[in-house]
Amino acid sequence: MRAFTYERASSVEAAAKAAASNPEAKFIAGGTNLLDLMKLEIETPTHLIDVNDIGLDKIEPTQDGGLRIGALVRNTDLAAHETVRRDYGLLSRALLAGASGQLRNKASTAGNLLQRTRCPYFYDTNQPCNKRQPGSGCSAIGGFSRQHAVIGTSEACIATNPSDMAIAMRALDAVVETVKGDGSRRAIPIADFHRLPGDTPHIETVLEPGEMITAVVLPPPIGGRQIYRKVRDRASYAFALVSVGAVIQSNGTGRIAVGGVAHKPWRVEAAEAELPNGARAAAHVLLADARPTEENRFKVELVERTLAAVVSEARG
């Protein structure tokens, strides 16, 4: 970990301004991802702006009947919130499938969306990795790639986004609200928020430098059976090999977003249109362009089978 300076921001505006004035700065929320990466010098900010005390820890109804979740709401609190449990069960379930109780107590909504990949080569600074060191190469291609992405990959990077929460947010059509250094604000649909790796895998979202997340907004509830199914080797405290977040309506239509397969939560509206024809049909469209490695080919079938289980659970 390199030496850094630290400030505790007093307001949203002050935090955004501080970030705009220092390109080497980073926000720190729960710190559960950032600090680990700093210890390994994968992240090397020279300045940290602590955003824990600027009033972004509230969950409030929106005028149109949705829910605004402050960027600093902890994963534990969000999962336990009465409205979330009642109307957005998928989100609650996805959160509780992630990390551990201790981590969820610290982890924030914004930090969770911005957590970085768990590719083991990304974590080993001796190894080439385009995401960590652009242009150095990708060690996972041709290497140990069991966990890696099967779709939307590039020649530069085959990493996944490991977030469980983001899968639920994607299926629920959340919107990410931000503020920039000049005080301007924007709302980014979650579908556009995370990027595919392309030839710039080090750029993971559409956030501009210094842009801060203030909230994540959920549209009004859509009902349906809401299921999050996380498939992993051990029963707890492990990242997903594959996960399926689904909202299935009684008429057989629904939404599905899949985790563990891509650099972003994977959702294909055309696949959802196939849902009434069964899970297999939907999965075929969902992963039509999959390009797995030898080691993670199983994920294609696993998605199909998990989706089938989820659909049958929703019907049952």
């Binding site: 083991p120 051990r234 707890s236 990242f239």
Partner: peptide
Amino acid sequence: VNHDLAGYEVPVHA
């Protein structure tokens, strides 16, 4: 390659 406790899984209580 999986040289930490995130990558090398041992059983947990569950």
